[in-house]
Amino acid sequence: MSDNPQSFNPDTTDLDRLHPAVKREKADVESGTEQAPMWVIFLGFIVAIIAGGQLGPNVGGFDFNVSNPFASSRFPDPRPVDGTAGAALDPLQMAMKKGAATYALCGGCHQGSGLGVPGAFPPLAGSDWVMGGTERNIRVVLHGLQGPIKINGADFAAPAPMPPQGAVLSDQDVANVLTYVRNNWGNKGSLVTKEMVAAVREKEKARTAPWTGPELEPYAKAEVAAEPAK
């Protein structure tokens, strides 16, 4: 119910409509004048000390030309090292690590377990093709594969064609993923290097169509000459 203040006429005005809500507002009360408790001051000092710790050497002498006060410091190398100090990471280990990441491209068909899908996608684990000649393996990855093939004696009469990866993967990537495939899931194979892949790529640079089983027979046991890794 709105009040009827004397200075306004009885017609409803905005003010009358606004009035009730305003009328029920609580009055302001003078705020407390207590002292801030001691522990607030104490905590404040602790924060200030932590804050001060951000300065110190980080300030770089307030020099406009110093962006990094630690630029000439030598920091210990945090990266993991295998073997003697100063040696590069073992090429096989590096290839396995990187190959595992690249294998994500292959896992869709050949599965993470390397077992493939019977009848559709050949297995890689324990496969005689994988453990066979690198000449064949590199060609399969670079240009793809189609048509019926025989893996470990089992027929893959109408497997899905394997898409070529040569355009998508660099020589190093192909080498890594082949090394991984040849050394994982109980396979005991050897290192494939990028020079080997490059040599095959160069030799077969005219090739556009995917390989078929019969075409790859001559390469079944052939190894690419491995140049000493740099």
């Binding site: 801030a36 607030v40 905590l43 404040g44 924060v47 200030a48 932590i50 804050a51 001060g52 951000q54 300065l55 980080n58 300030v59 770089g60 002498g61 307030f62 020099d63 406009f64 030309n65 110093v66 962006s67 990094n68 006060p69």
Partner: peptide, 23 residues
Amino acid sequence: PLPAWMPAFGAMAGVLLLIPVGV
């Protein structure tokens, strides 16, 4: 790349701001 003292002061202020915030 900023002159080192500028981020350092920013860091200090950022931590010190805990005081007014907490209060």
